[in-house]
């Protein structure tokens, strides 16, 4: 039996490819707009988000038989909020400048629709291991779109990637200018729009159908 036919593989890969949270469900767009002007904050955001998503899924899944049904949304929120505060505290202690750059957006992970969505739709009905993989997969599915978008934005908007100058100085001397639009919100809409199209056309549900 190849690894591709195991349930674990499917649970992990589906949210990255066919059911990508950003490209197919258009969830989590707010943070994708906000942090992707540069690559580094995007990567940190993805790590924080994936951490929160995986462990909130695991926790909710572990508690799924004991959570009283009438307060389950509140319980999910408490789990998510606690994990986000934990991630924020660690960033402030060990990566202060990045934490300043991300400012309110780490706190806003709490309201990221993907996390609540996965807790409700997946973790409440599946075992911790699959929930963990689902969280990881969704985090990375969200993450790869964020990184791709931020590479385009930083390269076209500032001429750098991860702070290193990519577009040579001689280009600027010949009259090349950075595209200011890419740093602003419309730049993200255009980039994400193109990505959503490409993802759904070639990898997603439509492409397979």
């Amino acid at each position: 039996m190849s690894i591709r036919s195991t349930k674990s593989y499917k649970v992990f890969m589906t949210p990255i490819v066919q059911a990508n949270p950003i490209a197919t469900a258009i969830l989590g767009i707010c943070s994708a707009l906000a942090v992707t002007t540069q690559v580094l904050p995007s990567i940190i955001m993805v790590l924080a988000m994936t951490f929160v998503l995986s462990f909130s899924n695991v926790t909710v899944s572990l508690l799924r038989h004991v959570i009283p049904k009438n307060i389950r949304i509140i319980v999910e929120l408490v789990v998510i909020a606690s994990l986000v505060i934990l991630a924020d505290q660690f960033l402030k202690a060990f990566m202060f400048s990045v934490s300043k750059q991300l400012s309110v957006f780490v706190g806003l992970i709490i309201t990221n629709c993907i996390i609540m969505g996965r807790a409700e739709a997946f973790a409440l009905g599946n075992t911790p291991w699959y929930s963990f993989l689902d969280g990881l997969g969704n985090g990375l599915g969200y993450g790869y779109i964020l990184v791709v978008v931020s590479v385009f934005r930083e390269l076209l908007g500032s001429g750098t990637i991860l702070g290193f100058q990519i577009i040579p100085q001689s280009f600027y001397e010949m009259g090349y200018t950075d595209i200011g639009l890419m740093v602003l919100a419309p730049g993200v809409f255009i980039t994400i729009g193109l990505l959503v199209w490409a993802q759904n056309r070639y990898l997603g549900i439509e492409g397979h159908g």
């Binding site: 004991v66 959570i67 009283p68 009438n70 307060i71 509140i74 319980v75 408490v78 789990v79 909020a81 606690s82 505060i85 934990l86 505290q89 660690f90 402030k92 202690a93």
Partner: peptide
């Protein structure tokens, strides 16, 4: 529900206080 919510709050509060004080 009340007991569960209360227990949940205590656990989370302890966890976060620990992290905040330690860091």
């Amino acid at each position: 529900s009340f007991v569960f919510a209360f227990g949940m709050c205590v656990v989370c509060a302890l966890l976060l206080t620990g992290a905040a004080m330690g860091l």
